[in-house]
Simulated assay, not measured.
Amino acid sequence: MKSLLAYSKDHSLAGSKSVSPFWVMVKKEVADQIHSWRFIILALLILLTWLGSMYVSMSNIRTAMENVQDHNTLYFYLKLLTITDRSLPPFHVFIGFLGPLLGIALGFDAINSEQSNGTLIRLMAQPVYRDSLLNAKFTGSLIVISILFFSLNMLMVGGGMLLTGVHIEFAEFARILCFVGLSIIYVAFWLNLAILLSVKFRQSATSALTAIAIWLFLTVFYPILVQIVLKGILPDPGDLNPDQLVIYNQIRHNFLVVMPSQMYTDGTTTLLMPVVRSMGPLTMEQMAMAVPAPLPLRESLLITWPQVSGLIAATVACFAISYWLFMRREIRT
Score class of each variant (00 low, 15 high):
L4T: 11
H11F: 13
L13N: 15
S18P: 05
K28V: 08
V30W: 04
H35K: 14
F39A: 07
L42Y: 02
L42M: 14
L44Q: 01
L45Q: 08
L47C: 06
L47Y: 13
S53W: 07
M54W: 02
S57D: 05
A64M: 11
N72A: 13
T73A: 03
Y75C: 02
F76I: 01
F76R: 12
Y77Q: 03
Y77S: 12
T82Q: 07
I83L: 11
D85K: 08
P90D: 05
F91P: 02
F94W: 15
F94A: 02
I95P: 03
G99C: 00
P100N: 08
A105N: 09
A105M: 04
G107R: 15
G107Y: 00
S113C: 10
E114W: 01
G118Q: 02
I121W: 02
Q126Y: 13
P127I: 05
Y129H: 15
I145H: 10
I145N: 00
S146Y: 06
S146M: 12
F149G: 00
F150A: 14
S151I: 04
L152Y: 13
M156N: 15
V157I: 15
H167T: 12
E172C: 05
F173R: 09
C178F: 13
V180I: 14
V180M: 15
L182K: 01
L182C: 13
I184L: 00
I184W: 00
I185P: 01
V187N: 01
W190T: 02
W190I: 01
L191T: 05
L193P: 00
I195E: 03
L196D: 12
L196N: 04
S198Q: 14
K200E: 10
K200R: 15
F201N: 03
T206F: 06
W215M: 14
T219G: 09
T219K: 13
F221L: 13
Y222D: 03
Q227C: 11
Q227N: 13
V229I: 05
L230I: 14
P237Q: 10
G238C: 06
L240V: 00
N241P: 07
Q244R: 07
V246H: 00
V246G: 04
H253G: 13
F255K: 11
V258R: 08
V258N: 10
S261N: 10
D266P: 04
T269D: 12
L271T: 01
L271Y: 00
V275H: 13
V275D: 15
V275C: 03
V276D: 09
G280K: 12
P281I: 09
M284N: 14
E285M: 12
M287A: 11
A288E: 03
A290I: 14
V291S: 04
P292L: 08
P294R: 11
L295A: 13
P296G: 10
L297G: 12
W305F: 09
A313Y: 11
V316P: 07
I321G: 00
L325Q: 08
I331F: 07
